[in-house]
Amino acid sequence: MKHEYSAEHRKYLGKRKRNLTLVWILRLGLLALILGVWEMIAALGWVDPFLTSSPSRIGKTIASLYLDGSLFYHIGVTLLETMIGFVIAVVGGCVIALALWWSETLRRVLEPYIVVLNALPKIALGPLIIIWFGTGSEAIVFMTVLVGIIVATLHMLSAFLATDNNKILLLRSMGASKFQILRKLVIPSSLASFISMLKVNVGMAWIGSIMGEYIVSRAGLGYLIVYGGQVFKLDLVMASTCILCVLAAGMYFLVVLLEKLIVKDAES
């Protein structure tokens, strides 16, 4: 449908657009300000740049990592561990949540275990993980899954259980089987929760993988941060953290993109 908007509506749209431009200018301005002040503090020697690093030193560190070929190696390692852990946690969480929705008995039996696992700080399992999985990527992936899967399970289970009872009644009156109720109603009505669970789990996956690398690894961004801290190379710590910020934001926006794709698909 093509509309000829009224003058008033065009004015409103124009105002919104100008507002959006302003927001972006301010966002970028704030970033420039932070970087500028940070650089200045270091350059004028107000604080020892050994402690705070500085944007230019971070840039140089990243460049040198790139030149000796290790930049993409470390990024790749961490990214792969995070992604694999994320996918396993999400898929596993959904499957477990489906099983728990299906069987009330199972749900009641497992409830205390899930509560305990959820409350347990996963890092306490560090030594066990090292013994079971060694100090390679498997251990880090396991840690990532561990951190994410409980959250995914609980999030999806509560979405499944929140399905409108009247709609279930309606389907039952049509003679629907439990499987049909699941497929036609429970799963589609939990789509919005699925997306929000993905968003939460992006964060969880990074927590898991970096935590895992702190404990065991010999490569990856978490490793660079720990190593940089141990040898007092704050430039390396800061550079790795910045890269981490960019990657985490990138992954989050992928989920947002997916959301747009799915939501649009559901409405066309």
Partner: peptide
């Protein structure tokens, strides 16, 4: 069966 609310998906 028709309910109080339309319950359209």
């Amino acid at each position: 069966y028709m309910l109080q609310k339309d319950e359209l998906f």
